[in-house]
Design a protein around this nucleic acid. Structure first.
Lengths: 211, 211, 211, 211
DNA sequence: TATGAATGAGGGTTCATTCAT
DNA sequence: AATGAATGAACCCTCATTCAT
C-alpha cells in the first residue's frame, strides 16, 4: 500500500507549517530563520523551499489559514438567524477556540499582524479591515434592532468589543496561559459578552459615596 | 554666547529620537535602518552612535520616555484621592493625550512592544506587567468600594478595560486618524468609560418598569 | 515488437540534448537549470541524471558532437586533393551548414565556448587550438603553393579568415537570422571567401592600367 | 595636506574595478565571487557594496568605461575628415590599444559580452548594435566614395572587417599573448587592414596550377 | 562633535546532485 | 526507466557597528 503522494505532500506541508508556527512564536517572524524552521521540522534546509516559495510565502500561508477560518465563521454567523448577542458570542468563541487549539497561530496573528506595521501588506490590511467591517455590521444590526445603545457610533462600539476580546487573548498569549477546558472558555466568553453588554458598574449597590 | 553644551546635547538627542520615531513608525523597528534614521535627522549615521550606544538603546530610550510618563501618571493617580471612575478616566486620557501629541510614540509602543514577542525583553515584559498591575489595583479598589461588579475576576475586568482602550488607539493608529482637538478626545474618553461602566446594551428599551 | 532498448536510449538522449540546446541557447549555460532542461524535454529532472552524469557532462556531449563533425570535415578536407580556395570554402560551408541545421548548437559553441574562459577546460582549449592548427595548415599550404601571400604570418591570415567567418555566423546568431536555403548559404560563403582572397578594395576604379 | 575625498573615492573605485577585471578574467563573470574581488582588492567584503550597488553594477561600470572609450573614438573618427582606410585603421588601433593597456577589460568585453547571450541585456545589445552601425557607416562611406567594392552588402563587409579584428584580439586573449610595443601593434593593424582591403591572394605569382 | 569609509557576521535563496520508491 | 522528494554547499546582499580622520 503506497502512500498517496498528495496526502504525503499535505502532511509534510503541515509539518513545516507547525514547525514554523513554533519557531515564529518563539522568536518572532523576523528573527525566525529558515534554518530554524527546517531544523524544528526535522528536515533539510532546502526542503522548506520545495514546499514554500519564500519565507514570506510561509507566513502568508499561515495567515491564510487563519483568515479562512475567521471569514468562514463570519459567513456562518451572518447566515444563522440568531440574535445579536448570540452572534457576538460566536465571534468571541471563535477566537477563544482558535487560541485553545492553535495558540501559536493566534499568537502570530496578534503579534505579527494585527498590530505590526512592519509586516502589514496591503492585502493584509484589507483583510483586517474586512473583518472589522463584518463585526461592525453585527453591531449596527444590534443598534437597529434596539438591542444596543445608539448614542455611540457603531464604529466605537466595535472597537470596544473587539478590543476587549483581543486584550483577553493577547494577555493569555503574553503570559502563555492555557485555556483549561471548555468550561473556562465559556466563562471567559460570558464575562466578555456580559461586560460588553451590561458594563462593569455594580448595579446592585449603586450608591457611590463620593458621587 | 555659546550654547550650553548639555542643552545642545539634549537637543540633538531629541532630534534623533524624533527622527527615529518617524522612521520606525513608517517601516517598523526591524526594517528601520540606522542610516534611515540618520538621514531623517539630517546627520551622518556615525553620529547616531555618539548619542546612542546601539539601535536597541535607541528603542529603549524611546520606550523609557513612554513608561516614565505612564508610571508618573499612575503614581499621581494613586496619590490623588479621586474616585475610581475618575482614575480610570485619567488612564484613558493619558493614552489619548499621548497619542494626540506623540502619535508616533504611541504607534511604536503599540506595534512594536505591546504585542510583539520579537522585541519583548524581560525588562519590557516586567514594565508591561507592572502597568497592568497598577491598573488592576484601581479595578480592585472599585470592586472593594462597591463601584464595580465583583462577580468577575479583577483581572478580567482589567483586560476588558485596557483592551477597549488600546483597540481605540490602535485603530486610530492603523488608519492614521488624528484626534481633532480636546473636544473629540473628551468624547472618546467618555464613550470608552461609559461603555465600560454601563455596557453597550440599550437600557431605554429594556424591560425596566421604573425607568 | 519491442523497441530496441539501445535505440530507445539514443532517442531519449537526443531528446534531452535537443532540449538542452534550446534552453542553453535561451539562457546561457550557467543560467540553464537542469530542471529547465528536463521540463523542456518533457521528463522529470531526476531522469536527466540517468542519461548524463552531470550538467557538465551534458555540455561536453553537446560539444563533442560539434567537434566530431568539425574534425571529421577537416580530415576529409585534408584527404581530398582539392586546391586551397576549395578547402577554405569547405570550412566555411561546414560552419554555415551547421548553423543552418543546428543553429542552437552553433550558438552555444560560439557563445559558451569559443569565447568564454569561464567554461574553458584544458580539453576544450586543446580542441580549439587543434582546429586552429588544422586551418593554419591549409593556409600554410596556400602560401607554399603561392596561392596566398606570404608577406604575413600564416597565423595572422588564419585569424583573419576564421574571424571573418565567425563574425558572420555570430552576427546571424545574435540577431537570430535564419539562412534561407542553400542559395543564400552559397552566396555568403562566396562573399567571405572572395573578400578574404581579394580584399574589400574596389579594383575597378583602382589605377591599374593593365586591367 | 588631506587627501581629496572625491579623489580618494575614485582611487578606491578604480582599485576595485581593476581587481574585478582580474578576477572576472580568470574565472568568468559568473564564477567570480564578490568575496574573490574583495580579497583581490585587499578590502573587506562589504566595502565593495559601498562603492557598487550590486555585482551587476560592477560589470555595468566596467563595460561603461569600455563603451565610453569606443563611442568616443567613433565620434572623433566621424569628425576627422580622414579617408576611409584611415578611419578603419583608427578602429583597429583603438581595439589593439585597449588590449595593450587593458587586456583584462578587452578580455571581459569579448568573453562576457560580445558573444554571451547569458549576460546580454537589452541595453548591452543596443550598444553593440550601435557600434556595428557606426562601423557600417564607415564602410558605406567607402563604398559610396568608390574606395570599397560595392558588389557586397555593406553589412557583409562590416562583419568581415570586425570579425577579422575581433578574431585577432580574441586569439591573443585566449593564449594570453601580450602586444610587445607599438611596433608590433602597428604591424598587426597593417596586416588586418591590408588583408581586408587587398585580400589574402598572392597577386605576384597569380598562376594557380589547378585553376 | 562629526563624517562616512570599513568591517564581517548573518540570512534568504538557488540549484546541482543524490536517493528512496 | 522514471519520479520528485531531499540534501546542503554556495553566494549575493544587508546592515549594525567600529574606526580613522
Amino acid at each position: 500500500m503506497k502512500k498517496n503522494p498528495v496526502d504525503s505532500r499535505r502532511i509534510k506541508e503541515s509539518a513545516i507549517l507547525e514547525a514554523a508556527l513554533r519557531v515564529i512564536k518563539k522568536k518572532g517572524f523576523h528573527k525566525a530563520r529558515m534554518g530554524d524552521i527546517a531544523r524544528e521540522a526535522g528536515i533539510s534546509y532546502g526542503l522548506v523551499y520545495h514546499y514554500f516559495k519564500t519565507k514570506e510565502d510561509l507566513l502568508e500561508t499561515i495567515l491564510g489559514r487563519w483568515w479562512d477560518g475567521l471569514f468562514g465563521l463570519m459567513a456562518e454567523t451572518r447566515a444563522a438567524g440568531e440574535n445579536v448577542p448570540e452572534k457576538l458570542r460566536r465571534i468571541i468563541l471563535f477566537l477563544l477556540d482558535s487560541y485553545q487549539h492553535h495558540p501559536n497561530l493566534v499568537n502570530i496573528f496578534i503579534t505579527e499582524i494585527s498590530r505590526s506595521t512592519a509586516n502589514l501588506t496591503r492585502k493584509r490590511l484589507e483583510r483586517f479591515k474586512g473583518f472589522m467591517a463584518l463585526t461592525e455590521e453585527v453591531i449596527v444590526e444590534g443598534q437597529t434592532k434596539g438591542v444596543l445603545r445608539d448614542d455611540f457610533k457603531a464604529r466605537y462600539l466595535t472597537y470596544i468589543f473587539l478590543g476587549s476580546l483581543e486584550a483577553f487573548v493577547s494577555a493569555m498569549v503574553l503570559v502563555n496561559q492555557k485555556i483549561k477546558g471548555d468550561g473556562q472558555k465559556e466563562k471567559i466568553a460570558e464575562s466578555i459578552l456580559e461586560v460588553f453588554l451590561n458594563g462593569a458598574r455594580n448595579k446592585k449597590k449603586a450608591k457611590r459615596p463620593g458621587a
